[in-house]
Design a binder for these strands. Structure first.
Lengths: 228, 228
DNA sequence: GTACACAATATTGTCTACAATTTTGTAGTC
DNA sequence: GACTACAAAATTGTAGACAATATTGTGTAC
């Protein structure tokens, strides 16, 4: 009596998440065209619902909709990629500042627990979990900072970071996540604002530095500049 | 041969703007119900288009959509209002920092020109222009900072600030905008990062302080807490 | 043989009708 | 007389059909 298609009749949010995950896991490459009718069939929903999902994904920056042309998985340029990190440094500095003032022992426990999950995922090698938990750590910090807006903004930025990582990740990725995450948490636990901010800034710099964001892949977006 | 209804057949963006303006000018009060069919008739468009506009406005935080219940003009709580300023201080600090490094003489001219417009609007007393230009100054700073994301985030925050101002504005508003704006610009022109940041922070504090954000109006959102 | 114009196809954008849900009003019963 | 259950009205949510637009393929003229 089971429905063979587990995604049948899924609400908009589920569809968004499935597409988001596919992008984050690189099953959907940047530039891929997303035909509405095709998606509607895959998810066994109406095209109207797919359109809702696509517009939602567009505002998260994961897909780009060109009028009368269709939706594509976004291809953030190098400049846009760097820009995401500019914004993240601004937001996350403030998040860390606030946490140094407000973090409860319970919060610290929760953060350490999350890092432990990251370690487990790292050992198991489950890419989906690694991607989700790594971003989740930063989101958890934002959530605990008590500012719904900083959280919301960072949610956006983490999504975009996933796409950027999928697009520009260099071959040699050494999973430095959990260790640096723990360092940030310990500074927060010690209420050492300056150190916590510095650690977070360095962490974000490391993440950015691990990407192939230099020269080369700069203009393959436009056919003209790519071929001439 | 003129169509009596000037908004007939308007695209989604126009509808959003008209509603946004109505909220910013307090013609639509927080909590007002926005019936889709009614709006569709007013703007002479289909209900589907109204739905698009409403979901876009929800994303900007100006309206709240409750499933199967309808759309209402948002009623940001005091906490949410303060939160907007937390986020703005974080974003605008970074905007000012970047501008101190990157602002060209041309940028400074443009900023001074904008402030002049604000002064003119202030003298004419056109509330619509005052609201728009006052927020526009901050958006111009963000635009000139060269970060599309900081700009996009601030765009959101300025919209929400308009709603908050409409909701919590105290009776005695002394239009301190242009003068403080000019002070920020002059510090930027002088490449004085610390002073510019400080001036901006104080300006935002003043704007926040002018609102009736203390106690009282805290929980009239929920009928239960309002009446019991 | 090449280039331009035109037609066919495919895909998106929009509107209208139907279904589901909530709210409001009414009647019946304790 | 008040409370509960039911029914009717109104409003939102969804889906399917139609129209507009862009792209691709073909034919003809130079």
């Amino acid at each position: 009596m089971y429905n063979a298609d587990e995604a049948a009749g899924a609400p908009t949010a589920i569809i968004c998440e499935k597409i988001w995950l596919a992008i984050a896991e690189r099953r959907l490459r940047p530039g891929t065209r997303l035909k509405e009718e095709q998606l509607a069939e895959i998810f066994s929903v109406s095209r109207a619902r797919i359109r809702q999902a696509l517009t939602a994904l567009e505002r998260d920056g994961l897909v780009t909709i060109m009028p009368n042309r269709g939706a594509f998985v976004s291809e953030p340029s190098v400049d846009e990629a760097r820009d995401v990190f500019v914004a993240r440094r601004a937001i996350e500095q403030r998040v860390v500042e606030r946490l140094c003032e407000r973090a409860t022992p319970k919060d610290i426990v929760r953060l350490r627990g999350h890092i432990e999950e990251e370690r487990i995922a790292g050992r198991s090698g489950n890419l989906s979990d690694i991607v989700r938990l790594s971003g989740g750590f930063h989101l958890l910090l934002a959530e605990l900072s008590g500012s719904a807006f900083l959280f919301g903004i960072l949610r956006d930025l983490v999504s975009r970071t996933s796409l950027i990582t999928a697009m520009y990740r260099s071959n040699h990725l050494h999973n430095c996540g959990p260790d640096e995450h723990l360092a940030v948490v310990e500074h927060i636990a010690a209420r050492n604002v300056a150190s916590a901010i510095k650690e977070m800034a360095e962490h974000l710099n490391h993440v950015e530095a691990e990407l192939d964001l230099d020269e080369e892949k700069d203009q393959p977006r436009d056919l003209r500049t790519a071929l001439l």
